[in-house]
Design a protein around this nucleic acid. Structure first.
Length: 272
DNA sequence: AAATCAGACAACCGCTCCCGA
DNA sequence: TTCGGGAGCGGTTGTCTGATT
């Protein structure tokens, strides 16, 4: 299925299909440190990839809450309607489809929706000519709290990943260790890894400063699930205090341990 | 069974935008 | 105000898969 992996001899950077091992390294790194700098990230993550490639792989394939599988009829209709109005602004269109990436939307458009949209136009033209009146097939209906800017600017109210995701001041000194501790948690990176529900009783609490609380089991997979379970915007903008007695010690390495509690600030853009 | 073709999609490339110095 | 670096976006390519001949 995939391209044959190759290597750019000039830069020494690998190209082509990502291997499971590369995926594991990238997931391990980003879940642990965030994407503080895509350009520098591959060096610290132990990847022979350019930052751009890492970013693309994470955003389009590895990040949590990616929605896989066929597009629903509602999704397809929304894509067609928005494309009619906005043109090839895939990131803007994808922003209205939770879990879908711009790349996925773009691919789906080119492979199936484009023809359908053209057919619709042809059908409309035929209807128009036969009935002597214009039939508009397109009408944008957006959620009440959404907005479409006139430029290509991001719609997300959240700041960029580079602003929030770095939490460790001594990042460089700890980043080059291995990620063996994650092996037991990230053995098979597939849909179930990111989406399965918490099934065990919680042994710890990750608490929002405001209203939301999230259970955290004493293993890393559930730790991630606690975050992935949330779709509440406030979750991503509020700092979280974690009772350290329930946090796997491996997770504390890159974080400040000066106080009894520590705060993690996650950037929604990384996770959604 | 083998060859061919179209569809699907992961990934790369080049350009633009944004932000900080 | 200008410039450089990093991130994001959209266009395009390359390869695999399944259907068809």
């Amino acid at each position: 299925m995939a391209r044959t992996p190759s290597c750019d001899k000039k830069s020494g950077m690998r190209k082509g299909t990502w291997t499971a091992e590369e995926d594991r390294k990238l997931i391990a790194y980003v879940t642990r440190y965030g994407c503080w700098n895509w350009r520098q990230l591959p060096k610290f993550a132990g990847l022979s990839r350019c930052g751009k490639s890492c970013r693309l792989r994470w955003l389009n394939y590895l990040r949590p809450n990616i929605k896989r599988g066929n597009f629903t009829q509602e999704e397809e209709e929304l894509i067609i309607r928005m494309h009619k109005k906005l043109g090839n602004r895939w990131s803007t269109i994808a922003a209205e489809l939770p879990g879908r990436t711009d790349n996925e939307v773009k691919n789906h458009w080119h492979t199936s929706l484009k023809k359908r949209a053209i057919d619709n136009i042809v059908t409309n033209e035929e209807t128009k000519s036969t009935q002597g009146r214009c039939v508009s097939n397109y009408q944008i209906t957006l959620p009440a709290n959404s907005q479409i800017s006139d430029t290509n600017g991001p719609l997300s109210p959240f700041s960029s990943s580079s602003e929030l995701s770095s939490t460790s001041s001594d990042h460089n000194s700890t980043a080059l260790d291995d990620f063996g501790f994650l092996d037991s948690f990230i053995e098979d990176v597939d849909e179930s890894f990111w989406l399965h529900n918490l099934s065990n009783k919680p042994s710890g609490i990750v608490q929002n400063h405001t209203t939301e609380s999230f259970v955290m089991d004493n293993d890393f997979g559930s730790f991630l699930d606690a975050y992935n379970e949330s779709t509440v915007d406030s979750f991503w903008t509020q700092p979280y205090e974690v009772d350290m007695s329930h946090v796997p010690t491996e997770l504390l390495i890159p974080l400040s341990m000066e106080s009894e509690n520590f705060s993690i600030v996650y950037d929604k853009d990384i996770w959604s």
